[in-house]
Amino acid sequence: MATVEPSDIAKLAQLARIAVSEQQSGEVASRITEVLNLVDQLQAADTRDVEPMAHPLDAVQRLRADQVTEQNRREAFQAIAPAVEDGLYLVPRVIEE
């Protein structure tokens, strides 16, 4: 059985940079202790004959064929762009040196 003390909560709160008052630390410690005890119960379960699952449902995702469905309109888009050079869009510099 794991037990978390209020002093442990104060250390964790400082490391996590969160504010936990002394009044709250007792309640937080008991809740974390409950969670750790639940984890201990789950780890105690015998899972030797249980086959791992990739997904709990036997659903299959239908995928579409990987095919190009649109025409190449690069030239049309670059024709209306404000500034293009060597097939690239020119944009204003945003980083100063």
Results as ranks from 00 to 15, higher is better:
residue 41 Q to C: 05
residue 41 Q to M: 11
residue 42 L to W: 08
residue 42 L to Y: 10
residue 42 L to A: 11
residue 43 Q to P: 00
residue 43 Q to L: 11
residue 44 A to T: 07
residue 44 A to N: 14
residue 44 A to I: 02
residue 45 A to S: 08
residue 45 A to C: 07
residue 46 D to F: 01
residue 46 D to Y: 01
residue 46 D to A: 02
residue 47 T to Y: 06
residue 47 T to S: 03
residue 47 T to A: 05
residue 48 R to G: 01
residue 48 R to L: 03
residue 48 R to W: 00
residue 49 D to E: 13
residue 49 D to M: 08
residue 49 D to H: 08
residue 50 V to E: 01
residue 52 P to Q: 04
residue 52 P to L: 02
residue 52 P to A: 05
residue 53 M to T: 10
residue 53 M to W: 09
residue 53 M to F: 11
residue 53 M to A: 14
residue 54 A to D: 13
residue 54 A to C: 03
residue 54 A to E: 13
residue 55 H to S: 14
residue 55 H to C: 10
residue 55 H to N: 13
residue 56 P to I: 03
residue 56 P to H: 10
residue 56 P to K: 06
residue 56 P to F: 09
residue 57 L to A: 15
residue 57 L to D: 12
residue 57 L to T: 15
residue 58 D to S: 07
residue 58 D to P: 00
residue 58 D to Y: 04
residue 59 A to F: 14
residue 59 A to N: 12
residue 60 V to I: 07
residue 60 V to G: 04
residue 60 V to M: 05
residue 61 Q to A: 08
residue 61 Q to E: 05
residue 61 Q to G: 03
residue 63 L to E: 09
residue 64 R to M: 09
residue 65 A to E: 10
residue 66 D to Y: 03
residue 67 Q to S: 09
residue 67 Q to R: 15
residue 67 Q to M: 08
residue 68 V to Q: 15
residue 68 V to E: 11
residue 68 V to F: 11
residue 68 V to M: 12
residue 69 T to Q: 12
residue 69 T to L: 14
residue 69 T to R: 13
residue 69 T to V: 15
residue 70 E to V: 12
residue 71 Q to V: 12
residue 71 Q to E: 15
residue 71 Q to G: 12
residue 72 N to A: 11
residue 72 N to Q: 08
residue 72 N to W: 03
residue 72 N to R: 04
residue 74 R to I: 11
residue 74 R to Y: 04
residue 74 R to H: 03
residue 74 R to Q: 08
residue 74 R to V: 12
residue 75 E to W: 00
residue 75 E to S: 11
residue 75 E to K: 09
residue 75 E to I: 06
residue 76 A to V: 07
residue 77 F to K: 03
residue 78 Q to S: 03
residue 78 Q to K: 04
residue 79 A to G: 08
residue 79 A to Q: 10
residue 79 A to D: 07
residue 79 A to C: 05
residue 79 A to H: 04
residue 80 I to H: 06
residue 80 I to G: 02
residue 80 I to N: 06
residue 80 I to A: 10
residue 81 A to F: 04
residue 81 A to M: 07
residue 82 P to F: 01
residue 82 P to R: 07
residue 82 P to W: 01
residue 83 A to E: 15
residue 83 A to G: 03
residue 84 V to I: 07
residue 84 V to K: 01
residue 84 V to Q: 02
residue 84 V to N: 00
residue 85 E to K: 15
residue 86 D to Y: 02
residue 86 D to V: 00
residue 87 G to R: 01
residue 87 G to Q: 01
residue 88 L to Y: 14
residue 88 L to I: 02
residue 89 Y to H: 10
residue 89 Y to W: 10
residue 90 L to M: 15
residue 90 L to I: 14
residue 90 L to Y: 09
residue 91 V to A: 15
residue 91 V to E: 14
residue 91 V to R: 15
residue 92 P to M: 06
residue 93 R to A: 07
residue 93 R to G: 03
residue 93 R to S: 07
residue 93 R to N: 09
